[in-house]
Design a protein around this nucleic acid. Structure first.
Length: 593
RNA sequence: GCGGGUGUAGCUCAGUGGUAGAGCACUUCCUUGCCAAGGAAGAUGUCGCGCGUUCGAAUCGCGUCACCCGCUCCA
């Protein structure tokens, strides 16, 4: 572990500094003073990201029979963003609390009663001053002293350390103004007066077409998922697949984040890796298999089964994604947050956040949501193009049902609709119409969506791998050794190739030979400058898992049995072993892929 | 967007109105038989950017941009 694990800010600064110094991540447009919330990946960062991208693509699509790839455009018909709800939800009118700058949606403020208290400002014994008129609501039930204490605490929280202790803050020139009834002008939690309602649109607006009129307005996609939904039918029709199957995509997405922060963690331009895995509605599974399997602790999730409904598929993908993270060295820093019914969007059945420990806190890496048929249905309605698929197996199974059995299924669903706590229940006529289609083998597939952030993953991998140890050299001088303990699969450089000494032509020649041999198959780095120890250290710092050193034994100095063997050094243990050059690739390749 | 902080060499930072510095890193040469060795030489900055005050600004004022910390959300 790092020496500075207790100081997250210092820890992050070291990581940012290493990323810049060794060419992982640079600030975008740095020579012009930067550009807010966007970052560039340098030579090593580009390799790291590529390795992560490839790992995702291979495990999620190429190594599976039931997932296909897609590479859709960033610009799309803006109608997609209206149908998906992004135009509305990403453009809320928000009001800011004047006391804390906390924002609330303008239409989410409940009417409140109380007395308006006013102050001309605040000051603290340490000389700190806040010259801003303060208005806040003293609620009817609230005691004046508890109100003042609360206001002091809020001011202190907002001012940070400069204001000192909350109890020492003095509120200036208290005035009691009018009593208000049913006012929506005060923040529901803080009581601070709210500013003007302003739109906060998180989508990046642009113009598609050179005339740049309002008719040409479109958006840079705020997520890659919608492109998958929009192309669902084309992929389905062109690929001879059956539900369940998935479509995976990796690509850039853009959000006008109000506050980009934590290095690359929240950026305005970022790369997503999303899978939309389409499954049959539970009712279809029940008709075909006679039952829908239920999840229990310890359920076998290794091989998908025909009787799985959304719940088991959802669990399955959580399990799959966990295995993926274990495979890139993040297994022991993951946490899970299962959203509660209150957290969930009305259309979502379940959502799990896979969180990862960063120096700045435990934050989300990936969300895995069971979204029902919300997205495809929304596009079906908005585009008026059917997103239903036809399921032969379902039709055959449904044909064998008696009318009583069919009615039982319908009644079960109606009861479930009636018990809904969120969103409108589906009217009975609509439910019956839906079953009518279902019994004929047609339905809009439901979806499980594992959605990961590539930039976050790269940052997580770097942060997890970052380690410092203090070392005292023979002169008693302390130095800090930095090692990136990257998983060999994701490390940008797999092998460093070094001649022991550079002034011995036979060592250099042999080393170049080994380098030429390896670099066709692995990303290698050749280095002949400085002492061998320094070269090892340089590679340790960028996470290179293996070092190959060509020494005098390689040239046969210690006898023929060691001729054409090299020293293979392991980064994490520092251990060395002798390996024949001819066996090097066979030994290394399985370790890095 | 609001509040607080920061911005000087690739990195970490010193420099409070008078000729821009240190350590590490980097380049070249010499030396070097396994974990940041040694020696010699060398390159590097419009002190984030702009405007102002001043005989003179890295330093003072104003503005601006970026980053960090809070408010946030969910890739």
């Amino acid at each position: 572990m790092s020496t500075d694990a207790k100081n997250p800010i210092a820890q992050m600064e070291k990581i940012v500094s290493l990323c810049k110094r060794r060419g992982f991540i640079f600030q975008s447009s740095e020579i012009y003073g930067g550009c807010g919330g966007v970052w560039d990946y340098g030579p090593l960062g580009a390799e790291l990201k590529r390795n992560l991208r490839t790992a995702w693509w291979n495990t999620m699509t190429r190594e599976r029979e039931d997932v296909l790839g897609l590479d859709a455009s960033i610009l799309m018909n803006p109608a997609i963003w209206k149908a998906s709800g992004h135009v509305d939800t990403f453009a809320d009118l928000m009001r800011e609390c004047s006391l804390t700058n906390k924002r609330v949606r303008a239409d989410h403020v409940d009417p409140q009663d109380g007395v308006v208290m006013k102050y001309s400002g605040a000051k603290a014994p340490n000389g700190w001053r806040w010259d801003r008129a303060i208005s806040a609501l003293l609620k009817n039930s609230e005691h004046i002293e508890s109100f003042r204490k609360r206001i002091r605490a809020l001011i202190a929280q907002n001012a940070g350390e400069a204001a000192g202790k909350p109890e020492e803050i003095e509120l200036l020139n208290e005035e009691k103004i009018d009593a208000v009834n049913g006012s929506v002008d005060f923040h529901p939690e803080t009581g601070g007066i709210l500013g003007e309602a302003r739109p906060f649109n998180l989508m990046l607006k642009t113009y598609l077409g050179p005339t740049a009129t309002e008719d040409d307005v479109t958006y840079l996609r705020p997520e890659t998922a919608q492109a998958i939904f929009a192309q669902f039918k084309n992929v389905f029709d062109s690929s001879r697949v059956k539900v369940p199957f998935g479509i995976g995509q990796i690509g850039k997405a853009f959000r006008n984040e109000v506050t980009p922060k934590n290095f690359t963690f929240r950026s305005r331009e970022f790369e997503q890796m999303e899978l939309e895995f389409f499954i049959k509605p539970d009712e279809a599974v029940e008709i075909i298999s006679g039952e829908v399997a239920t999840w229990h602790e310890g359920a076998d999730l290794s091989v998908p089964q025909p009787n799985w409904g959304w719940e088991l598929w959802h669990r399955y993908w959580v399990d799959q994604r966990t295995k993926f993270y274990q495979g890139i060295g993040l297994g022991d820093v993951l946490e899970y947050y299962w959203q509660t019914p209150a957290d969930l969007a009305h259309y979502a059945r379940a959502c799990v956040d896979i969180l990862c420990e960063f120096p700045f806190g435990t934050e989300e890496l990936e969300g895995i949501a069971a979204r029902g048929d919300f997205d495809l249905s929304a596009h079906q309605t908005a585009s008026t193009k059917s997103q239903e698929i036809f399921d032969e197996e379902l039709k055959t199974a449904a044909a064998k049902l008696t009318d009583e059995q069919k009615e039982a299924l319908i009644q079960k669903r109606l009861a479930a609709e009636a018990a809904k706590t969120k969103g409108e229940p589906m009217p009975e006529a609509a439910v019956r119409a839906w079953f009518e289609r279902l019994f004929k083998g047609s339905y809009v597939p439901h979806v499980i969506e594992p959605s990961a952030g590539l930039d976050r993953m790269a940052l997580a991998v770097i942060a997890k791998a970052f380690s410092e140890t203090e070392k005292v050299d023979e002169k008693g001088k302390k130095e800090v050794i930095t090692v990136l303990r990257l998983h060999p699969r994701v490390a940008p450089i797999k092998v460093g190739v070094f001649p022991l000494l550079k002034n011995k032509p036979e060592l250099v020649a042999k080393a170049r030979e080994v380098y030429a041999l390896l670099k066709k198959h692995l990303n290698c780095f050749y280095d002949e400058t400085a002492s061998i120890g320094r070269r090892y250290a340089r590679q340790d710092e960028v996470g290179t898992p293996f070092g190959v050193t060509i020494d005098f034994e390689t040239c046969g100095e210690k006898g023929p049995e060691l001729q054409d063997t090299v020293t293979l050094r392991h980064r994490d243990s520092g251990e060395q072993e002798r390996v024949k050059i001819s066996e090097l690739l066979g030994k290394l390749l399985p370790l890095v892929s």
